[in-house]
Design a protein around this nucleic acid. Structure first.
Lengths: 208, 208
DNA sequence: ATCTTTTTAGCACAAACGTGCTTGAACCGT
DNA sequence: ACGGTTCAAGCACGTTTGTGCTAAAAAGAT
C-alpha cells in the first residue's frame, strides 16, 4: 500500500492558503501557482487534491460558509439558553451579531473571504449554488433572532421578513465598511450601531 | 492640423464600455482587449486616450463616483426645498435613498460598477484615493440627511455619526443584497426596509 | 528485498494579459 | 496640392493562467 496521507487535513491546509491569499491579495490572485506557493507545495500536488481550480475555489467557499454558519449557530444557542431581556441575554445577542464583523484577525480573514466569494458568485456560475446556501443559512439565523427579539414575537409575516432583512442589510453594510474603510469604522462604532439597531427593534414605533 | 475628434466624448464612450463589461462580466474581465472590443475600437486606439490600463480604470471609477454623487446632491436639494415632515418631503427622502439601489437599468449598472471598484480598492493602491473620495462624498450627504431628519436636529456629535453610519450601512447592505440576491430582494422589500429605518430614525426610543 | 499504489513534482501547450513600438490613414491649415 | 499632426490599428515580447500528461519519489504489504 502507498504512502498514507490524511487527505482531509492536506485539503484543509490548501484551503487555509487560499484564505490567506484572498485576504491579503484578493480572489483574483488565488491562482493554482500562488496557492501552491503559499501552501509550500507544487502545482501538481495541489491538483492531486483538487481536480481543478474551480473545485478548489468552490470547496474553499463552502468551508468559509460552514465556519461562519457554525459560529452563528453556536452563538445563537447561547442566546437561546438565556432569559429573554436579561443583561446577559443582550450581551449574547451582541456577541452573536459580532460574529459577522472583522473584529479580530480570524474573523477578518473569514469576512474578507466570504465577501469576495459572494461578489464573485454574481458572475461565476460555479459559485452560485454555495452563495444561495450561504444566504439561506445566515438569513435563517437572523430570522430566528428577530423573531425572538421583536416585542410581539414576530407576528405578521411581512413585518418579520422586513425586520430580518433590515438587520441583515445593516450587518452586511457594517461588515463591508469595516473591511473597506477600517480607518473610519472602529469596533466602537460597530457596537454603537448594533445597539442602536437593537433598540429600534425592541422599542418599535407605535405609528405603524 | 490633424483629424479633430472630441477626445472627451471618445473617452466617455470607452468608459461606458468599461461599465457594461463590469456589470455583465465583472471587473477582472475589464481588460484592454475586452474594453476595446466592447467599444468597437482597437487596443491601440483605447491606449491613445488612456495611457495605461490603470488610468482607464481609475478614471472610470471617478466617473461613476461623480454620477452617483451628482444624483445624490440633486435629490438632496429636492429634499431641502420641501417642508420638513410633509408627505412630499418623506417621498423625496425615499427617492434620495433609492438612488443607492439598483432600481432600474442605469442605477443597476452604476451600483455594480461602484461596488466592484470599492472592493477592488481594498487591494489595488491606485484606486485607494478615489475610494476615499467616494466614501467622503456619500457620507457627507447621508450625514446632512440624518441631521435634517433626527428629531433634535442631531445634537450630540457621537449620536449623529452613529445614526449616519447606521443609515449608510443599511443602504450599502440593501444595495449588496439587491445586486447579489435579486431573487430574494425585490424593490418592494427595499422600500419597506427603508421606510422602517426612517421610522426608527424619526421616532427614536426614549430609553437612551 | 520487491512490488504497488499514492503522493509529489514538473514539463508543455494554448490562451489572455499589459505595454513599447511601428505603420497607415485621415484631415486641417497653409 | 502639400505637409504636419492626430487618430486608428496592429505587431511582438515577456508574464501569467489553467490544464493534460509524464515521471520520479515514497512507503506499506508481501
Amino acid at each position: 500500500m502507498p504512502k498514507i496521507v490524511d487527505a482531509g487535513a492536506r485539503r484543509q491546509e490548501v484551503v487555509e492558503a487560499v484564505f490567506r491569499i484572498i485576504a491579503s491579495d484578493g480572489l483574483e490572485r488565488a491562482s493554482l501557482r500562488e496557492v501552491a506557493d503559499e501552501a509550500g507545495l507544487a502545482v501538481g500536488s495541489v491538483r492531486h487534491y483538487f481536480a481543478s481550480s474551480d473545485e478548489l475555489l468552490v470547496h474553499s467557499f463552502a468551508v468559509v460558509i460552514d465556519r461562519i454558519a457554525g459560529r452563528l449557530e453556536e452563538a445563537f444557542a447561547v442566546v437561546e439558553s438565556l432569559e429573554s431581556g436579561s443583561a446577559e441575554h443582550d450581551a449574547a445577542v451582541l456577541t452573536l451579531l459580532g460574529q459577522f464583523l472583522p473584529l479580530d484577525e480570524e474573523l477578518a480573514v473569514d469576512a474578507c473571504v466570504w465577501m469576495a466569494f459572494r461578489h464573485a458568485a454574481r458572475i461565476r456560475p460555479v459559485l452560485e449554488q454555495e452563495a444561495a446556501r450561504s444566504h439561506r443559512a445566515v438569513a435563517a439565523v437572523v430570522g430566528r433572532l428577530v423573531m425572538r427579539l421583536m416585542p410581539d414575537g414576530g407576528s405578521g409575516q411581512d413585518r418579520l421578513v422586513t425586520e430580518a432583512e433590515r438587520l441583515l442589510a445593516t450587518l452586511d453594510g457594517l461588515c463591508m465598511h469595516a473591511l473597506l474603510q477600517p480607518e473610519w469604522m472602529t469596533a466602537e462604532v460597530c457596537r454603537d450601531v448594533l445597539t442602536a439597531h437593537l433598540d429600534t427593534l425592541v422599542a418599535l414605533p407605535s405609528n405603524r
